[in-house]
């Protein structure tokens, strides 16, 4: 790419930035009341979830989250379709192994805590799942080529858990004559917890598997 084109692009980007700022600033300065925010906060008791973000993610806009988990699944399946993983690093030294032996359970525990706490305070499926995934990353860095993941069929099951829990709960509710993902208020809290747990496992497993970066070598381990 030659210098003149670079300059042109930089200029255009600057103009675009100025235009966007010109449009955004007045709006940001006098941001109108968000009706949606008020409604979201007001309806929270009905969901049985204390953390408003979790309420949005798993109740009001649960459908978005369902599709998002499908995106995650699609990414993993895409990665698998491209072939086997690259070889892992060499086995870590004893000191590092000892540290990993400490860190991984800690990450898993913290992930579980975040999942559980996510109903009331900051945290939830994504953060918990991310920590599980991080545990996988650490394991792989330590030399485990599978990042602590089970054999392929189980990986497939884990990766499908999130979307699966959502779709099955949704379809069962449809079958019961309710709207898709319209939780009965008595069960809302528990259904959300079930879905969240499934999603946590799925996110953790998917992120770790994505880090491994290829289709697990068939069946056996």
């Amino acid at each position: 790419m030659n210098g003149r084109l670079r300059l042109l692009i930089a200029l255009l980007a600057a103009v675009l930035g100025a235009a966007l700022l010109w449009v955004f600033l007045p709006l940001l300065a006098t941001r109108p009341e968000s009706a949606l925010a008020k409604a979201a906060l007001a309806a929270r008791p009905l969901t049985g979830v204390g953390n408003p973000v979790t309420a949005v993610l798993l109740d009001y806009r649960a459908y978005d989250t369902l599709l998002e988990l499908a995106v995650l699944l699609a990414a993993l399946l895409g990665i698998w379709s491209l072939g086997p993983p690259t070889p892992a690093y060499q086995r870590a030294g004893a000191a590092l192994r000892a540290m990993i032996a400490w860190v991984v359970p800690l990450l898993v525990l913290a992930g579980g805590y975040l999942l559980w706490a996510g109903g009331q305070v900051p945290g939830g499926a994504f953060q918990g799942g991310a920590l599980l995934g991080a545990a996988g990353v650490v394991l792989r860095l330590g030399g485990d080529p599978h990042a602590g993941l089970p054999a392929e069929p189980w990986q497939r099951l884990l990766a499908s858990l999130g979307v699966g829990a959502f779709v099955i709960v949704g379809l069962v509710l449809l079958g019961l004559g309710r709207d898709f993902l319209d939780y009965p208020s008595a069960w809302a809290k528990w259904l959300i917890l079930v879905i969240e747990s499934a999603a946590t496992l799925a996110i953790g497993a998917t992120l770790a598997a994505a880090y491994v970066g290829g289709r697990p070598p068939g069946g056996t381990r």
Partner: peptide, 18 residues
Amino acid sequence: PDVALAEAAIGAGLGGAL
């Protein structure tokens, strides 16, 4: 804080590791 946690763990953490 929810998003901050997620960004630290997923965006910076896992994305960075990848």
